[in-house]
Amino acid sequence: MGRILLVTGGARSGKSSFAERLVAGLGPDIAYIATARALDEEMVERIAQHRLQRPAAWHTHEAPDFPSQVIAGQGQRCDGLLLDCLTVLTTNKMLAQAVDWDHPAMARLKEVEAAVMVEIEAIVAAAAASRADLVAVTNEVGCGIVPGSSMARFFRDCAGRVNQRMAAAAAEVYLVVSGIPVRIKG
């Protein structure tokens, strides 16, 4: 049975680099699961930088909507899985829903969050059924000011609940601050 190791922290905290070191310790055969989409020049550059910093031997799987399927498919054959990242996945799931973010209906927001959480539960289940450990990266977005828009507030709240669920399922949780990982669970 695979374990979940959750790595969280703020933007540019060093969480992805730490997660890469953590998963590298699991063995040589690593499946890297990317959730980002290259929708603009900045994201193209960020994705290129992430590719350069990880070993070329790792198998990259682009799964912006259903990383649980990659975990289920690769978890029996590889030494470790790295999912980067849950907050981008949350954004992808949010934007796939038809919502008037200027005037969102509460019932509709509950449906959007439910759609996000279905995939999170699928990730937890796939990781539990896997022989490989899953290292999942996520952003801690709840430490700043209250966002001014309804979409940003919903994202902050939804991402917080995603992080709580993943942390509850995780055997270990790390908070990375200024490049320094601190184990907060396990």
Rank of each mutant, 00 (worst) to 15 (best):
M1F: 02
M1E: 13
M1V: 10
R3D: 15
R3K: 15
R3A: 13
R3L: 03
I4Y: 07
I4C: 08
L5M: 11
L6T: 00
V7G: 09
G10P: 07
G10R: 11
S13Q: 07
S16E: 12
F18N: 01
E20F: 07
R21G: 15
L22E: 08
V23D: 03
A24C: 08
P28G: 14
D29I: 04
D29Y: 02
I30F: 06
I30A: 12
I30S: 03
A31R: 12
A31V: 00
A36N: 00
R37S: 05
R37G: 01
A38R: 09
L39H: 00
L39R: 07
E41R: 13
E42M: 10
E45H: 07
E45C: 05
R51L: 13
R51F: 08
L52M: 15
R54M: 14
R54H: 04
R54V: 03
P55E: 11
P55M: 12
A56S: 14
A57W: 00
H59D: 14
T60G: 06
H61Y: 13
E62N: 06
A63M: 15
P64C: 08
P64K: 07
S68Y: 08
Q69V: 08
V70W: 00
V70I: 12
G73D: 15
Q74T: 13
Q74A: 15
G75S: 02
G75K: 04
G75N: 03
Q76R: 14
Q76Y: 01
C78E: 10
G80L: 07
L81E: 00
L82C: 12
L83S: 03
D84R: 10
C85R: 02
L86E: 10
L86G: 04
T87G: 05
T90Y: 02
T91V: 09
T91I: 08
N92F: 12
N92V: 09
M94Q: 03
L95M: 11
A96L: 06
A98H: 12
W101Q: 00
D102P: 07
A107E: 15
R108K: 11
R108D: 10
R108A: 07
R108Y: 04
L109H: 03
A114W: 01
A114L: 02
I120E: 05
I120N: 06
I120K: 10
E121V: 08
A122R: 13
I123L: 04
V124A: 05
A127I: 09
A127G: 08
S130L: 10
R131A: 14
R131T: 14
L134M: 13
V135K: 02
E140R: 05
V146M: 12
V146A: 08
P147H: 04
P147Y: 05
G148Q: 13
S149I: 08
S150I: 09
R153Y: 02
F154H: 15
F155M: 09
R156H: 10
D157H: 04
R161P: 00
V162Q: 03
N163F: 07
Q164L: 02
R165H: 14
A167C: 07
A167G: 11
A168N: 09
A171M: 06
V173E: 12
V173N: 06
Y174L: 01
L175W: 04
L175K: 06
S178C: 13
I180P: 00
P181C: 12
R183E: 11
R183P: 04
R183N: 04
R183F: 00
K185F: 06
